[in-house]
Amino acid sequence: MRALAVLSNWNVVEGGTVLHILGIGFSHPTNVIDNPFIEQLNVGTNEAWILDKIGIRERRTSLPLSYISETRNQDAEQALAHAENTPHQLGVNAATMAMQRAGISPHQIGMVICNCCTPKEIYPSEAQRLADALGITAPVVDVFTACPAFALHCDYLDRFDESALPDYILALSTATLTQHVNYNDRSDGAIWGDGAAAWVVAPRARGRLKVLETYFASDPTRSQAVVVDTYGHFHQDGRAVRDFSVRQTVRLVKRLEEKFNLDWKRDIFIGHQANATMLEQICNNRDIPPQNHWHNVSYIGNQAGAGAPAVLGMHWDMMKPGQRIAVAVVGAGLSWGSVLLEVVS
């Protein structure tokens, strides 16, 4: 058996299982919450403040704008009843795109792993509902950590002995967090969007993206810093989470730079899609030029675990062979992780 070099929690894939990502899909609702809409809610914010602090112009939501205006979503249970999209529907769309890009059919999927922090039902789970809708008969598992899902899923699969993995795995992250937002809060309403992303992973087939390294870690002693209450709303310790997000992302990126000699004239950075101002701060810290920083948060909002992989999916046709893509994500848990990818075809 070829030797693996293991550095603490980071798995450098030099031998052993080599994962490839064959296709990535994404899906977002069509309703748009723009900054003028938030201004007219009269919650003490304006576009200038939003752009300065968060850098987001628009977000996609599964909720009717009239529902938000009339109720401010004070009762999160009612949001579910009024929503025009569900995490399941968005996930199906994203998965369909991913499988089409991968050139495989649902019956070829041997495992489904799913991350959803806004399920409509616990039984059956989102993973099960998605698999049923897609015609997938493989086993399904919810592998969950909210925002850093892309890093967790890649790292989770990378831990398996290759022989125990099926030929194709469908991984998804889907969430409709605007259904848990209190729109009387001046900042929460400006952050969140809804969306889904899906990616087809293969341990033996070659695909567009080769996984060079995976990493996932967490500090649950700070888990109550970012919370979505089942019967209530999202809430967070904003300042602490912002500091954590910037610091941790910079650490993740620096480590990848040093180990893999990343070249920001050619290589790409994708961060957690929570706050465009924060991402700009990170890029300035690491001298990443704007054209090599891919993002979508400024016009979609924070899509939780779907954000970073959706960015990948949206840039699917822009990837250049030989390019390396550093995905560094942080979020609830508090948890964080990174995936280093190489564009191979």
Binding site: T145, A146, P220, Q224, Y231, A332
Partner: peptide, 14 residues
């Protein structure tokens, strides 16, 4: 769950 986020593992770690 009483919280849909974080996960049970993370609440336990806390």
């Amino acid at each position: 769950p009483l919280q849909v986020t974080p996960g049970e593992s993370q609440r336990l770690g806390d």
